[in-house]
Write a protein that binds this DNA or RNA. Sequence first.
DNA 1: AACAATACGGACCACCGGTCCGCTTTGCAA
DNA 2: TTGCAAAGCGGACCGGTGGTCCGTATTGTT
Lengths: 197, 197
Amino acid sequence: MPERKPRKDAVRNRAAVLEAADALFARCDRPDDVTMADIAAEAGVGKGTLFRAFGDRVGLIRALYEARLEPVEEAVTSGPAPLGPSAPPHLRVPALLDALLCFKLDNRHLALALEGTGSDSPYGAAHYERWHALLRGLLEQVPGHGDGGFAAHALLAATRADLVEHLAGRESVPRDRLRAQLADFTAGVLGTRREPA
Amino acid sequence: MPERKPRKDAVRNRAAVLEAADALFARCDRPDDVTMADIAAEAGVGKGTLFRAFGDRVGLIRALYEARLEPVEEAVTSGPAPLGPSAPPHLRVPALLDALLCFKLDNRHLALALEGTGSDSPYGAAHYERWHALLRGLLEQVPGHGDGGFAAHALLAATRADLVEHLAGRESVPRDRLRAQLADFTAGVLGTRREPA
DNA sequence: AACAATACGGACCACCGGTCCGCTTTGCAA
DNA sequence: TTGCAAAGCGGACCGGTGGTCCGTATTGTT
């Protein structure tokens, strides 16, 4: 059994750090304004604790991001239609993208902090791989597409955190309008765009 | 006459710095491995010279990027079809995106360095505004589209530097295949996809 | 109660972007 | 050619950041 049970204070501190980091990222708009020392202070722990628990800055942000994303992934892998596996591809694809967009809207600070990690591109993250593989598989079930792999990347790129931030934040595009625009774009890609009124 | 003629050594050093930076970024794959001190040393000047000439790191990278991009923009604004203004929108849009993709393939290191500037999103840059406005205008001339603004953002997002790097670099997708994939995706968005053979 | 094992925390380090100011180069003018 | 102010130079220097280290405090097990 390589798994050793962690100590109580360890798990308590880990939780405290995650909560503190979330609060700080939500408060400040520039993600790099939040330093590791800030997070440690807010959580009431020492800096060493942060790095022991999460390895480095990216690890901390990633842990936070994936914790927040987990409910969405749960809904995708084993929830009801249109997000869950029971939905037909041409309905599930836009539902997935909408869910992702909503998630990024609701967690702009986190998504921005994670994707803006400079040296570490979003394309190395495990969750990106999962989403891409899922989307690719669905796209290839929709007729009239050559390579679903690139289309999947392109559609995911349309929900990139800094683009969302630019539109929703800087240009103040309302949430529902953005969702409608993404849905419209997705429909175009799928070839299922509705007739103009 | 607010313009004062710059001294000779100033222009010589400026050119040397740009060349040195280009070489260093091309050599190393991680853009932040290249420090300002490295660039200064490679160019044979002092660090102060870098900052006086370009303001800060972003300024230097941006200057380099825009210098390299300028021929492409020239071809777009006043060249022949299909890139120039004489081409009809449904041909010019894919031509523009292809040109952009090729540019990013040929200048991966630069594009990566510029877009990976962390705190500074690509959406604030002047050249992004130009490309977006142009693309949006063209898209709105193609029938069957609601808001060309979002579609323009999404298409541009499909050529983001880190995505290109991931596909062309990490996954070794050959240049022509990538171009074909982007062309196919673009055709889908425009509703001009050709019949499967 | 005693004692490993584990975790804590903040002093400490290396390094980076950016500033500053005494010195050199340039080019105009006499 | 010489004189001279302005423009430019460069590298020591600074503030601050991510990340490390190790003496000390906290666990929980016997």
